[in-house]
Amino acid sequence: MTETAQLSIGNTALAVGNPWVFFAVTFAITWFFWLSAIALGVSFTSAAGLVLLLAGLVGPGIAGIGFVYLVYDERGRTDFWDRIKQVRRIGVRWGLVILLVPLAVTIVAAVVDTLLGGPGATWGEGVREFDANPLAILPALFFATLPPLLEELGWRGYALDRLQLTWSALGASLILGVVWSVWHLPLFFIDGTYQHDTVGFGTPGFWLFTIGIVPLSVAFTWVYNHTSRSTLGIILLHGWVNFVSETIEVTDAVYYLQWALLAVLITAIWGAKTLTKAEDVPRPPPARR
């Protein structure tokens, strides 16, 4: 099942199913709205800014659904929606992995930070202010629900399969991780975002955030390929990572280092099989002829 779509773009030899076409469309959708926010000087804390934020966030998901319907036949389209709905693909074992890995990474990072003389783990702002203002937890809940759903319909729901047709799981993870990281770039220039208000462009935190997304992508592929390509599992993992990081704060350098070490560990253990053999990874249904 390694066929690619025969639909091409105009008179070119570029197939619609090429993942780079999906990336181009996704960036065009998202960056149109986010660059508009920059040009207009609006903050994402305003009503207009929130609309532009949400419109940009739907880019990967809308593009993912669109390309599924362009590239795949009825079987492929059904498979796409099944991977979002079917809880049984995850199973108890990988459900525990999804639950425990983000907690373990955070706990280990806190311990290491403490040993290095840092503050260790502290409660996030939403938790600290919850007693006085229960609504303070809403940002953490937002980043744990809506962005993962809107993003993962495209990143893992569509693009990862297309990349793994050509690349090993590790190669596909690294490519997708870099693309996913660059996709966030406009957020560093928009008032009201975590990237702008807390991290800042060109700071050490900027580089930690930008590079740190890549090992996350390796961990996500590891879970994805072991849960029968469950998009639902990745949405849950992405959301849980966001929620844990929003509610339990650890020094960024130590936190992202632990994800990098986990990615190395996954590669070392799993790499002898799936990460280095493209023929071993799960295949999407055939594309349309």
Results as ranks from 00 to 15, higher is better:
Thr45Val: 09
Gly76Cys: 02
Arg83Ala: 02
Gly56Trp: 07
Tyr69Arg: 15
Ala121Asn: 05
Ser43Gln: 00
Ile137Gly: 03
Phe130Thr: 10
Ala55Pro: 11
Thr114Ala: 14
Ile137Ser: 02
Val68Trp: 01
Ala132His: 09
Gly120Gln: 03
Thr114Val: 09
Gly76Ala: 01
Gly59Tyr: 03
Ile98Phe: 05
Thr114His: 14
Val51Gly: 10
Ala47Asn: 01
Arg89Glu: 01
Gly49Ser: 03
Phe130Glu: 10
Leu53Gly: 02
Ala63Met: 07
Arg128Phe: 10
Asp113Ser: 11
Ile137Pro: 11
Leu40Tyr: 00
Phe143Ala: 13
Gly41Leu: 10
Leu100Val: 15
Leu99Pro: 13
Val101Trp: 07
Val92Pro: 06
Phe80Tyr: 15
Gly59Lys: 05
Gly49Arg: 03
Gly95Cys: 07
Leu99Ala: 15
Ile84Cys: 11
Leu149Asn: 00
Leu96Ile: 14
Val68Cys: 02
Ser43Met: 03
Val108Phe: 05
Tyr69Glu: 07
Thr145Val: 12
Glu129Arg: 12
Gly49Leu: 01
Phe143Asp: 05
Glu125Leu: 13
Leu103Thr: 00
Leu135Asp: 10
Ala144Trp: 06
Leu150Cys: 12
Val58Ala: 14
Val111Tyr: 06
Leu115Lys: 04
Leu96Gly: 08
Ile98Met: 08
Val42Ser: 05
Phe80Ala: 10
Leu40Pro: 07
Leu40Arg: 13
Glu129Gln: 14
Trp123Lys: 07
Thr106Leu: 08
Asn133Asp: 15
Gly59Phe: 02
Ala136His: 08
Asp131Pro: 15
Gly95Met: 03
Val58Glu: 10
Gly117Pro: 15
Leu96Tyr: 01
Ile84Ala: 12
Asn133Glu: 13
Leu52Trp: 04
Leu57Phe: 13
Gly95Trp: 05
